[in-house]
C-alpha cells in the first residue's frame, strides 16, 4: 500500500475508507513482534497526504522499476527530499550531532562553489541533466557524495531540495506578509527574523550563499544578476497556494522582489562559519 501511495492517489470515495483503515493500523495496537505494522501505516499516512495534494506522480505514465524500488527503500530509509526541516535535522542527529544546518544543504552549496559555479554562465537557471541529477539525489540519500564535474548538477539538486521541502522554507503562514511587504526593506528583514529558528538559519545561509553569486565580478560571467537569481530562487523559497493562474503570476513578481530585497539587504554575517 505504501508503494502504491507514492504513485497513485485514491478516488474520493476510496480515500475515506483508506484513511480510516490506515489510522486504525497506525496506533500500534495491531503490531506484532515480527511486523511493526504501525511503521508502515505512518508512512502510508504521509504518502497519502502528499499524493492527494500533488495528484498522480507520473501523470499517465507507468512508474519504472527503479522508482518502485526506491519507493520501497524509503519506507525504512526516509529521503531527505520532500520532508520538513525538522525531519531532516532529526535524520542527521546521530550522524552529525554538532551540525546546526542540514548536511544536504551545506554539502550541495559547497559543491556548487567548488565546481566554480559562481563563474559559470546561467548557474541556477540552466537545468542539469535530469538523469545525472537523479543519480546524485539517490547517492545523497545514502549520505554519500560522489564527485561530479558539472556545477549545474548540484545546483539543480539544491534548488530541488528547497522546492520539495514538505513545508516551504518560508512557511505558508508568512506568505501573505511577504507579498504585502515585498517592496519595503525593514518589514522584510523583520519577517526573516521572526521565522522559526531552523527556518531562519537555513534561509540566512541560503541568502548568504546567493549574495556570493550577486557580486558584480561573478555576474559579469554568470549573467545571473540579482533579478535573475531572485527569479529562479523565489519559487524554491515561497509557495503560492492559489490555484488561480492570474494570482500566481501576479504574485510571482512580488515573490521575486521579496527575495531580491533579502539578497541586497539581509545582514548574513551571523551565519558565517556555521555548519
Amino acid at each position: 500500500m505504501a508503494i502504491c501511495l507514492s504513485f497513485f492517489p485514491p478516488s474520493g470515495k476510496f480515500q475515506v475508507l483508506i484513511e480510516r483503515y490506515i489510522s486504525l493500523q497506525a496506533n500500534g495496537n495491531v503490531d506484532t513482534p515480527e511486523v511493526p505494522i504501525s511503521i508502515y501505516a505512518k508512512v502510508c499516512q504521509k504518502r497519502l497526504e502528499k499524493i492527494l495534494q500533488t495528484g498522480p506522480k507520473k501523470g499517465l505514465k507507468k512508474p519504472t522499476f527503479e522508482e518502485i524500488e526506491l519507493s520501497k527503500h524509503t519506507i525504512h530509509f526516509p529521503s531527505m527530499f520532500g520532508t520538513t526541516l525538522e525531519e531532516v535535522m532529526a535524520m542527521q542527529r546521530t550522524r552529525y550531532p554538532e551540525r546546526r544546518l542540514p548536511w544536504i544543504q551545506t554539502i550541495l552549496s559547497d559543491e556548487v562553489l567548488r565546481l566554480n559555479g559562481a563563474q559559470i554562465e546561467g548557474i541556477f537557471r540552466v537545468p542539469g541533466d535530469l538523469d545525472s541529477v537523479n543519480a546524485l539525489k539517490v547517492k545523497c540519500d545514502q549520505w554519500q557524495f560522489p564527485s561530479v564535474e558539472d556545477a549545474h548538477l548540484p545546483a539543480s539538486l539544491l534548488k530541488f531540495w528547497y522546492r520539495e521541502l514538505a513545508e516551504p522554507l518560508i512557511p505558508s503562514i508568512f506568505y501573505e506578509q511577504c507579498i504585502l511587504n515585498c517592496d519595503k526593506v525593514e518589514p522584510c528583514i523583520r519577517l526573516v527574523n521572526s521565522l522559526p529558528e531552523i527556518n531562519r538559519i537555513v534561509l540566512t545561509y541560503l541568502i548568504r550563499f546567493l549574495q556570493i553569486f550577486a557580486k558584480p565580478e561573478n555576474v559579469t560571467i554568470t549573467k545571473m544578476d540579482v533579478n535573475n537569481l531572485s527569479m529562479v530562487f523565489a519559487p524554491n523559497i515561497l509557495r503560492c497556494d492559489s490555484d488561480d493562474a492570474k494570482v500566481i503570476f501576479e504574485n510571482a513578481r512580488k515573490e521575486m522582489l521579496f527575495i531580491k530585497i533579502l539578497i541586497l539587504n539581509l545582514d548574513t554575517d551571523s551565519i558565517e562559519g556555521v555548519i
Binding site: E121, K223, M224, N228, F249, A252, R253
Partner: peptide, 8 residues
C-alpha cells in the same frame, strides 16, 4: 540581455 522570464 540575459533575463529569466517571470511566469508567462
Amino acid at each position: 540581455q540575459y533575463k529569466a522570464t517571470i511566469g508567462a
